[in-house]
Simulated scan of single mutants.
Amino acid sequence: MNLLTRVRRTLDRLTIYLPLFLFAILALGSWWLVRSVPELVQPGLNPRLRQGPDFRLDQFKLQTFDASGRLTREISGQSATHFPATQSLHIEGVRILAENEAGARLTAEAKTGISRETEQEVTLSGNAIAVRQAHAQSPYTEIRAEVLTALLEEERLVSNRPVRMTRGKDVFTAQGMNFNTRTGQYELEGKVRAVLPARQPS
């Protein structure tokens, strides 16, 4: 067997494995490209949905009624912009009115608000104020914070920011709060301070 024949046989064997080598190189190149290119869409967002707003409302009011026709909730604002990708409504000059079947009435307002459709919550930001009118054994209660989150279905107000609560004549400050708007019960978190005026003897 001469040298030329050996070279031909060696080349024939190499051509058999050449497609495998090419596929391996392409696979490595694809893997490197996927790892190197940053994500174009944020995690958790549906890429088929438009990322920008799809509609805007001015001087709007959304109302919810129970089966008997009683108004249970109202969300209003100067303007609102809807973002379908995050299923959220961004509201300027937001105001909330809620009243449960027991008659407990709550109002809240702030400079801005974000209403998340899937989570049934509204986050109020910028001089947020919430007022629960006196009801049953619970006195008038006013809550002020930079950020308050209203959990609508749970009838709770929560905040992980500093809050100031006025409950009757008592004044509390804390670093966080969990307030049950149905019962008037509350939990203050972090460093808590209280100013309790002296009670007049009965």
Results as ranks from 00 to 15, higher is better:
residue 5 T to R: 15
residue 13 R to T: 04
residue 18 L to N: 00
residue 23 F to Q: 04
residue 25 I to H: 03
residue 27 A to V: 10
residue 29 G to W: 10
residue 30 S to G: 11
residue 30 S to T: 11
residue 31 W to Q: 12
residue 35 R to W: 02
residue 35 R to D: 07
residue 37 V to T: 02
residue 37 V to E: 03
residue 56 R to C: 02
residue 56 R to D: 14
residue 59 Q to G: 14
residue 59 Q to S: 14
residue 60 F to A: 00
residue 64 T to R: 13
residue 71 L to C: 00
residue 75 I to C: 00
residue 76 S to G: 02
residue 81 T to C: 01
residue 87 Q to K: 14
residue 87 Q to C: 00
residue 88 S to L: 07
residue 89 L to K: 11
residue 92 E to I: 01
residue 93 G to W: 01
residue 106 L to T: 05
residue 113 G to M: 12
residue 114 I to C: 10
residue 116 R to M: 10
residue 117 E to T: 11
residue 117 E to W: 06
residue 118 T to D: 13
residue 122 V to R: 03
residue 126 G to F: 08
residue 129 I to D: 04
residue 129 I to N: 07
residue 135 H to L: 09
residue 136 A to Q: 15
residue 141 T to H: 01
residue 142 E to A: 08
residue 144 R to N: 14
residue 145 A to N: 04
residue 148 L to T: 06
residue 150 A to I: 12
residue 150 A to H: 12
residue 151 L to C: 05
residue 151 L to T: 04
residue 152 L to N: 06
residue 153 E to N: 14
residue 158 V to F: 08
residue 163 V to L: 05
residue 164 R to Q: 15
residue 182 R to T: 08
residue 185 Q to S: 14
residue 188 L to Y: 01
residue 189 E to D: 13
residue 189 E to R: 15
residue 194 A to Q: 07
residue 195 V to F: 15
residue 197 P to W: 04
residue 200 Q to Y: 00
